[in-house]
Design a binder for these strands. Sequence first.
DNA 1: GGTGAAATCTGCATTCT
DNA 2: AGAATGCAGATTTCACC
Lengths: 155, 155
Amino acid sequence: MTKLDALDLKILDLLQKDARLTNKEIGLRVHKSITAVYERIKRMEDQGVIKRYVAILDPNQLNRQLNAFTHIQLKDHSKQVLFDFEKTVVAYDEVMECYHMSGSYDFILKISVSDLSAYHDFLINKLFTTAVIGHLESTFVMREAKMDTAFNLDM
Amino acid sequence: MTKLDALDLKILDLLQKDARLTNKEIGLRVHKSITAVYERIKRMEDQGVIKRYVAILDPNQLNRQLNAFTHIQLKDHSKQVLFDFEKTVVAYDEVMECYHMSGSYDFILKISVSDLSAYHDFLINKLFTTAVIGHLESTFVMREAKMDTAFNLDM
DNA sequence: GGTGAAATCTGCATTCT
DNA sequence: AGAATGCAGATTTCACC
């Protein structure tokens, strides 16, 4: 695993903002040849620094305009219960993110659905059927002020 | 704004999992010509259904291995205070996501830093300088069980 | 809305430095 | 390690169904 230099970081910075940039275009911006850019990107893909390339879609045009954060405390914390709960919830389409947390609740889920009624259905038909939930608190996103996948790669 | 049909959804589904698929490859999978695929993607980019293409990087190789969710209650809720707070925090590099919430706290921030010491610095030097914070609670991600940007486009 | 072919541009392997 | 070359293959436009 080679260390990343300033040029690598600059290339990553461009790609995490726009994955459709061609090597030629990147080369122009970092003042390197196409080949140099190509080889560095290839190396970083192989290293796993670049995990994948994805298209970001507009939730509003795909009927996913309601986002909720669901905070969950389990009834008990045996390894098996934690494992099973995690395995079950990550399989649900509505669950975009699932984190096992330190602190006063065990899990934070980010849920993406069409409306409150769909969220209700999700709770009743999916989450509550796991039966290991001790406490649950739902809060809803009124406004998404920032939602970024790109890190600042301070250069 | 044209409505999306089943073919559009299928193409979106492929692209939100792998933005590097060629039109040829997509065409093979949806049984359409390269041009048909090309035109539909172009239309959906213009419509804003496809917002952008990004590279997803590995936080662990970029010194962002600690994620926290910071729950914030403001001291007061005048329009100006809310607006200023939002404007300030979204500008911070450590803040990957910022949501204005309904319920018992006003904002949830997803913070991404290198370690606890960096999180401490972020609180002291950045968040607490806004001076409008009433209550703040930090919880830390111990395990990221799921982190997906792709919606299920049930077809 | 769809197709197929032509033109142009990129990706990627090879070779040279 | 990066630059130059060249071919294969991709994107994009266009004429037509």
